[in-house]
């Protein structure tokens, strides 16, 4: 066993990269759920973003364009869900699952020509002196733009929900859509916008996988990351800051268990492999045992069908 081989600084930097796809998808889903909509199609939107972004980056040679198209692609797919659940008032759980099924198939279909292709790389920003600061430099200033973007998004979503009037309206719609409607807010439109934002974030997260973290296109390459993102939103009890905590906790344990294996720690591999899930559950139990405030934080209209009857 060789714990000395694990460098905490390097580990911290790695876990940020490993957590970014689920963080992006989860922060988007947070906004969707805050508006009172439960979209279980995150996996389908992520994988669609992964292939759309990959294909455009390869065709144009521009990863930036790839990321933008991935967001557009994720948003477009999410609007199928949006129209079905908001306009045609279909069941959200089932429609979300159908979206995942469709996204997995659709992405594989358009990805057929992109197996074994190497995508262009997105240049890392050179932060010069900052990156040379011991410890902090490696942890904070050695990343690619998307990692910073994901952190900025968390702050932006937090500020949006907490301080802006639009954020207040969004939350009101999620808490009680009938009351919000009575006050004259366009419930359906607001929710469609939230759903599209969630789709764009999921698409971006997927493209981060296919363009940066792996980088490669293979069918089904998200391998369940969308489901983890959904779990993280619940874990966070619908708070932006805790989405960050949850994503980094999950990604951190996932990276740590691989490091422990490489260091030769004598713990059964299957237990290590299950540890990210177990640790997430245990931490949530500890948090929610605290007077159960978590449950109160769930948007009251989450998953309920809205119909403007008056």
């Amino acid at each position: 066993m060789d714990f000395g081989a694990i460098n905490p600084t390097v580990l911290a930097a790695s876990l940020m990269v490993a957590s970014t796809p689920i963080l992006l998808a989860a922060i988007g889903e947070l906004v969707v759920e805050k508006s009172g909509v439960l979209n279980l199609g995150v996996e389908g939107m992520m994988i669609t973003g992964a292939i759309v972004g990959f294909a455009i980056a390869v065709e144009t040679g521009s990863p930036a364009l790839g990321f933008l198209t991935a967001m557009a692609g994720g948003a477009a797919l999410s609007l199928i869900f949006g129209v079905l659940t908001q306009v045609l008032m279909s069941n959200q759980v089932a429609t979300g699952l159908a979206l995942t099924l469709f996204g997995l198939g659709f992405s594989a279909l358009i990805g057929q020509g992109y197996v074994g292709v190497k995508p262009p790389a997105l240049a890392k920003p050179d932060l010069g002196l900052l990156a040379d600061i011991p410890v902090l430099g490696r942890v904070l200033f050695s990343h690619d733009l998307i990692v910073y973007l994901s952190l900025a998004l968390v702050v932006a979503v937090w500020a949006f929900l907490r301080f802006t009037r639009a954020g207040l309206i969004l939350r009101a719609v999620g808490e009680n859509h009938d009351a919000a409607h009575a006050l004259g807010y366009k419930v359906v439109r607001i929710r469609l916008a939230a759903i599209a934002f969630g789709g764009a974030c999921a698409g971006l997260g997927g493209a981060y996988l296919s363009l940066m973290r792996v980088p490669q296109w293979t069918e089904g390459m998200t391998a369940g990351a969308g489901w983890i993102a959904l779990a993280i939103v619940v874990f966070a009890s619908w708070r932006a800051g805790r989405v960050l905590l949850g994503a980094y906790l999950f990604g951190g344990v996932a990276v740590l268990q691989l490091n422990l294996q490489a260091a030769g720690v004598a713990v059964p591999v299957e237990l290590l492999s299950a540890s990210p899930y177990l640790v997430t559950i245990i931490v949530l139990v500890i948090i929610s045992a605290d007077r159960g405030r978590a449950a109160l934080n769930a948007p009251a209209s989450l998953g309920r069908v809205f119909h403007a009857s008056s």
Partner: peptide, 8 residues
């Protein structure tokens, strides 16, 4: 513990 059953 009122832990959310969806996640668990």
């Amino acid at each position: 513990f009122r832990t959310n059953e969806i996640l668990v």
